[in-house]
């Protein structure tokens, strides 16, 4: 018997927190494959694709975005209760994203500087990855996520095998693709050695250094890479700043930023710790 005919179609939800919707767009960008996926999966919640709102329970829920507001905090706990498998997608959900840059700054001052009526803006002191609040069963990294990885994840889910999402450096894919190391041959700082693969080594293919949008790989030795950037001539704070991108709040990168300086929004020479490095209990 073939399993697909005997098993009910899995119910998949897509949930959005503080994010740009770019990762949801990658799902829509699957195009041809999306129709085939839709034939096999009940997509019961997908804000970017439909205004129709369903609710759990979900077999799988994909969560996009960081937890940045009290409302999102409630949502993620509710979603977790309704989801058998919760997978975070993208840099915001997995590492806090660009909005986590505010974690290094004075939250109230930021809010006052940006909004005319800051009292109407309700937000937590920090933007945190989902895993700081609830148990996460899997991650798809990237800003945005990679379409091939998403399809591989869905295929593995449907066929019942382990998804082939290796936790290795961008360098591994870069070298398989036959690219020349931009750091060694051109002196361009590149986060590839400490960043998780999945993008297909996109930036080094265009003579640019990786800026770490997939976040730290396992046991990322970011400190050694930071020291090498300094040895190549970068000022320490500048070396630290190179890690302070979409995934800068993820621990190994965060630690380098703390060590070298270069925190977002802070003048060089000042290196405050981010507002919260532990698991917060909620905003005030």
């Amino acid at each position: 018997m073939v399993r697909a005919t005997s098993t009910p179609r899995p119910r998949l939800g897509v949930v959005k927190l503080a994010s740009c919707d770019g990762c949801q767009l990658m799902l829509l960008n699957l195009e041809d494959a999306l129709l085939s996926v839709a034939e096999r999966i009940d997509i019961v919640e997908f804000p970017e694709a439909t205004s129709h709102r369903s609710s759990g329970p979900y077999d799988v829920v994909l969560v996009e975005g960081a937890v940045s507001t009290p409302e999102q905090l409630e949502t993620i706990h509710a979603v977790r209760r309704e989801a058998k498998v919760l997978v975070t997608i993208g840099a915001c959900a997995t590492a806090g994203g660009i909005q986590a840059m505010r974690n290094w700054a004075n939250h109230d001052a930021f809010r006052a500087a940006v909004y005319a009526h800051p009292e109407y803006v309700e937000s937590l002191a920090t933007a945190q990855p989902v895993s700081d609040y609830v148990k996460v069963d899997g991650e798809l990294r990237g800003c945005p996520i990679n379409g091939d990885q998403l399809l591989e994840f869905v295929t593995a889910l449907l066929t019942g095998r382990r998804a082939n999402l290796p936790d290795e450096a961008v360098c591994a894919a870069c070298k398989r693709a036959g690219r020349v190391c931009v750091m060694v041959s051109q002196g361009i700082p590149c986060l590839g050695p400490v960043t998780m693969t999945g993008c297909g080594a996109l930036c080094p293919g265009f003579d640019r250094g990786c800026y770490g949008c997939f976040g730290p790989r396992e046991q990322a030795n970011a400190a050694s890479l930071g020291r090498q950037f300094v040895a190549m001539g970068e000022a320490p704070a500048e070396a630290g700043r190179l890690f302070a991108g979409f995934t800068g709040y993820a621990p190994p990168f965060r630690d380098v930023i703390t060590e070298f300086g270069g925190a977002p929004g802070v003048p060089a020479g000042h290196a405050p710790s981010p507002a919260s490095t532990g698991t917060p209990s909620g905003g005030k």
Binding site: A169, A172, K175, P193, N221, S224, L225
Partner: peptide, 11 residues
């Protein structure tokens, strides 16, 4: 302490 385990040497 220095090694990035980035796989460039083996590749």
């Amino acid at each position: 302490e220095r090694c990035l385990a980035c796989t460039n040497c083996t590749a």
